[in-house]
């Protein structure tokens, strides 16, 4: 399923998010099963399937990382379910450093501040990565796409780490 086509967008990383949200609203209106409550069972089933695609497509296109991944999959590079690991020694080092930093938070005098510092650093890094990802995807060659895939793998790791930081912040609040 090509979600760009479903939403009437060109296949590109840079998309107009407010147009996306408006298009989603219109598509949800015409595909939602509630609009078929008096129709036959097979039409209802079709509506469930179609509106599930619309909902899924909206989520995929809304978030930059899943949008990039979807774009690559249309270009023939599948990242989901892969077992391949990243071969970038510098990033692996950085990854380990961040992990250690996160573990050290427990011993910090001000845990909240320590988490915030780490999260900020992470955000700055990921912003830089997104800019690079965007220019790689714009090139649209086999070589740049392979590099873009690596970029996505890095960003996925960073997103996961960001999520772990959030969980720790939540845990601090609960104490």
């Amino acid at each position: 399923m090509n979600f760009f086509a479903l939403f009437g967008f060109e296949e590109a990383f840079d998309i107009d998010l407010s147009r996306l949200s408006n298009t989603y609203k219109s598509l949800a209106q015409v595909t939602h099963p509630d609009k078929f409550s008096q129709a036959s069972d097979s039409e209802k089933l079709m509506a469930v399937q179609k509106s599930a695609q619309v909902n899924d497509g909206y989520q995929v296109l809304k978030h930059p990382l899943s949008r990039a991944e979807h774009l690559l999959s249309i270009r023939g590079i599948q990242l989901s379910h892969e077992t391949k690991t990243l071969q970038d020694p510098a990033f692996l080092m950085q990854q380990m450093e961040w992990r250690e930093q996160l573990e050290d938070v427990e011993h910090a005098a001000d845990q909240e501040a320590a988490l915030e510092t780490l999260d900020k650093e992470l955000q700055q890094h990921s912003q830089a990565q997104y800019i690079e990802l965007q220019s790689l995807l714009e090139v649209n060659s086999d070589e740049s796409d392979i590099q873009a895939a690596d970029q996505i793998r890095k960003l996925k790791f960073m997103e996961k780490l960001h999520h772990e930081i959030e969980l720790k912040e939540d845990a601090l609040f609960d104490e």
Binding site: L6, F7, G8, T23, S26, L27, Q29, V30, T31, A39, S40, S42, E43, M46, A47, K50
Partner: peptide
Amino acid sequence: AARRMDKSINQALSGQSV
């Protein structure tokens, strides 16, 4: 039914009133 669904999707995309 499938053609009708496609038609309403196309209408929604082209911004026409459904």
